[in-house]
Design a protein around this nucleic acid. Sequence first.
DNA 1: TTGTACGCGTTATCAA
DNA 2: TTGATAACGCGTACAA
Lengths: 345, 345
Amino acid sequence: MADRAVTLQQVAEAAGVHAATVSRALNPETRSKVNGETASRILEISKEMGYRGNPMARALRTSRSMTVGVLIPDLTNPFYPPLVRGIDDGLDTMGYVPLLANSDDSPIRELTLLESMRDRHVDGFIIATARVSDPAIQSIVAEGLPVVLVSRTVKGLKVPSVTLDDELAIEMAVNHLVDLGHSSIGHIAGPQDSTTGLMRKAGFLRACRSHGIKSTAIMETTRFNEEQGRIASGRLLDQYSVTAIVASNDLIALGCLATFAERGLNCPKDISLIGVNDMAYLDRIAPPLTTIHTETYQMGLNAAQLLLSIIGGKKSSAVESRVLQPQLTLRKSTDVPPPRVKKRK
Amino acid sequence: MADRAVTLQQVAEAAGVHAATVSRALNPETRSKVNGETASRILEISKEMGYRGNPMARALRTSRSMTVGVLIPDLTNPFYPPLVRGIDDGLDTMGYVPLLANSDDSPIRELTLLESMRDRHVDGFIIATARVSDPAIQSIVAEGLPVVLVSRTVKGLKVPSVTLDDELAIEMAVNHLVDLGHSSIGHIAGPQDSTTGLMRKAGFLRACRSHGIKSTAIMETTRFNEEQGRIASGRLLDQYSVTAIVASNDLIALGCLATFAERGLNCPKDISLIGVNDMAYLDRIAPPLTTIHTETYQMGLNAAQLLLSIIGGKKSSAVESRVLQPQLTLRKSTDVPPPRVKKRK
DNA sequence: TTGTACGCGTTATCAA
DNA sequence: TTGATAACGCGTACAA
């Protein structure tokens, strides 16, 4: 049963022509250079024989592996599965295959992974682990390899990217809270070495300013996760008296909810909360989380499309980055502020 | 900046030896066949020159691609990210890289993907999409390619696998409910063309029998998802009067909760619910879901290890499958049955 | 339109 | 212990 792979040579012999002719006939790009009849005959024979071609030989010859390196922080972070799924589906349309790896947000691991993928001769990269300053990515870009950044970008690096309008996202969140009547609003900011954390904090500051409310109640986290969110929100509540919190993302928001529970705070009656991303199953938690929706799947799909266009020959500097629009998703974690705010000091 | 890859030839010239010698020196397996001094000299020079090697050329020559095909139903199903992460980490230890693809539980897509991966000369497969009868997988196995099944298996196919003890999992669920005093227990079974759905239903029947309770309140779904769970649980409640439901997995349990909400049923006061897998963030929903915990990450890690041992030369028939032990995780969706059960007929 | 010849970068086999 | 040589399977100038 275990036939060894059929080779071009064998097809050629069976068809009574030279291997080169078979190669030309099988490649759509060069098929025109071969007699129509013989071409279709070869096509038929190769199909009969179950010819598949050897991707290694082809890759060695063309130095194109038909693979793409996909780098994300951590697949078990619920933000990424839809993103990766979008990338997968996008790459699949052109016969490309992703080489997926998790960096756990470690710069050295990112470097290792990037180099390992480069050594495997991937045709390009889709990177979701970018930091504001990221030498590893810069060096990959400097080598001239096709790169698309997704979700996060590198400051000052001119590379195509697909991102959420992070500033706008937070502004929408603040606007929503202000509309409800809040004026003491806190922010749990994400890591400031990522553009998402950075831009969202900037958005918070700008929105507060535009509403004329002072915005000192800010705590930063070092990771976008629940634990960090729990700790930071605890510190925030220790130091400030706020009626609402804008979390830099949903995971951090989940941490805030944990803090609320610890302190017997009812959300949204005592305090309102809003997150960013609208990760899966947030509508099922208690309380269902109001959040800013991100089209994560589309983000991945777009990233794949951009990269494919670059691999296809388009100058990297000529492809324009895409910025996805955030969308307010109302649920139950935000409400009007409680009647009276008790000051701590 | 964009140096073209350093080749074996170039290192050889720089070291004043033949390329073959460099090859031998660089490969740990053959290093003993080369003079110790020259070996270390070559090693040093190659490091200096930043020699990386060309995986395509190597693969062409050795017909080993250092890649593994990983097939799952759908990455956005929360069960899979930890599984894939385990696989990733397991493969990474030996320098292998996963080629990930989603089948969406479509048999034809599974076939296409499997063939496409085979054509890419992956060194083996880790498959999480198996159906009870699965010709595509059988033919891959028949071709002699290394395969490890994970989570689900193919009936009658002698292939190493890593699975949960599905029957036991459901038995534990039923036992828990019986301990609480329930005697009218329903089951939302998963798809019966997957061993998980099948075995879990069998476990349900067996457990009921052992407790001497009749177990006719069973509804089957065609997919392991929330929507199907919602529909099936609706039908179950229309036809039977039960005080508790065992869902074949957590997603289905989520669907049950949706039905409860629709009908104004309080869980667990009016009806108890228990799921399987303990997917992420189930402790945050309302009510926190009691479930049977699965070590999903370990499952993936183990699968990778088994596959690597086969690729490493171990006879597939000689590696023993692993069966993971389920674990009852108590939360808030199960309680004693309501005082009086109103019969419908 | 088709065939020839070579090379992509390695590794394996043989001689030396 | 090392060097020479072939071969893995394919694509592509170039010649015919």
